[in-house]
Design a protein around this nucleic acid. Structure first.
Lengths: 226, 226
DNA sequence: GCTTGTTTTAACATTACCTTAACTTTCTGT
DNA sequence: ACAGAAAGTTAAGGTAATGTTAAAACAAGC
């Protein structure tokens, strides 16, 4: 059975690269649209509303990072994934790119297999995360995804990975009650075999850190933050 | 949360003023080094490579303007900002100062708040102007991109390329946790096949040089500087 | 080709984290 | 109020991730 083809907008001022990528992506069953400069790219993205934008950083006129900012600013819903193409030497433009909201990078020269693998991984992750634009602040607690830290009462602290992920999950839908099985499935994956009560222990740790009142128990069901 | 401390070299032959300024600047979280004459100032600037030099114009021996010229002449890369202190009456010397390459002036008597405001504005402008928002200084460690050297506790040393790049990457976003895979992708490129644990070894080397506390491990995720 | 310095790999040691399991407390339905 | 179930709590042990070291592979300069 055939899956719905995802659309990709491709932006590069180099026609050879455009052609090369278009060919490879079409082979992989994506619908490909192309632009050769930042201005056209923005217009095209707004028209097509693609799942993903693959864009060169170096372009005449509006460059990739600027275009990225404009796309992020203009479209409020359904942000496309944006992957930037950089030359190997431009390492530090990647930093700027991350700041501007790029989802990933591919360095030239481009390996088609790697490119496709990255794209598929990104699309899959996006499907999982879907609508949950994850909140970063709740009550007195604020999480910083980049630094992997949590600020509580003005102190910035490090917490173990599982605790962080659990907190992140709760933050993503404040008030929602997560069943233990759901939590395990989301954070541990469906294939791992871990006892449900493990969740309780992590909950305990979080309550130890941030007080008992933040995480609420719904007996017979699961946990939520309130 | 801790900001990166910028260094300031302070030059004045009046000990009261030195003390007064040192106190105020330290309050504002700058690292302050002092000299009481032009000769020492030049040596100190070359050793510390500060972000900013705050220097009196009127000094015995080499005066402020002469010292300024010598600093500008000696240091080819990474010119520090230079702010001159003048008595209100010496307005004419400001002309000479600008000619010699001063970035700003502060007239005595000094208002600490005004001084700090000016300094911060200058540093910010400098960061923007250089277009490299990339930090060069963190804790006691400072990197010199042109010379490929690192200054630590006042000693300028050479470190291997990979270590330097790694440090540079961390400096570019203090606090951010870089995953091993990200680091490999950024510094080695997507096409090279190098084991993730290679990163650990380079981290080890850096910690050996600069102490264990600078680079922080986030288990299951990656490394950051703090 | 040798020498020197750097990078990578690989092996072993250490540690922080995760999980389990056992015991205690609280809740819920009867 | 009671029994049973669910959740709280704690501590110990296992495990995967990282620390650490040394040596092999590699590169640069002489």
């Amino acid at each position: 059975m055939k899956k719905t083809a995802k659309s990709i907008v491709l932006v590069d001022d180099d026609h050879d690269i455009l052609e090369f990528l278009t060919y490879n992506l079409r082979q992989a069953d994506y619908k490909v649209y192309t632009a050769t400069n930042g201005e056209d790219a923005i217009a095209l993205v707004n028209k097509i509303e693609p799942s993903l934008v693959l864009m060169d950083i170096m372009m005449p006129g509006i460059d990739g990072i600027e275009a990225l900012r404009l796309i992020r600013a203009s479209r409020i819903n359904e942000q496309p994934l944006i992957v930037l193409l950089t030359a190997r030497s431009e390492e530090y433009s990647q930093i700027a790119g991350f700041d501007a909201g790029a989802d990933d990078f591919i360095t030239k020269p481009i390996r088609p297999r790697l490119l496709l693998a990255k794209i598929e991984a990104l699309l899959r992750r996006k499907a999982v995360r879907n609508n949950n634009e994850i909140q970063t602040e709740f009550n007195d607690v604020k999480i910083n995804r980049e630094k992997f830290t949590v600020t509580f009462n003005g102190n910035e602290i490090q917490i173990p990975k599982k605790e962080f992920e659990l907190l992140e999950l709760f933050f993503s839908r404040p008030g929602k009650v997560f069943k233990r099985q759901q939590i395990l499935s989301l954070l541990w994956g469906d294939d791992t075999i871990v006892g449900e009560r493990t969740v309780d222990v992590h909950i305990r740790k979080l309550r130890e850190r941030f007080g008992d009142k933040m995480i609420h128990t719904v007996k017979g069901v699961g946990y939520s933050i309130t």
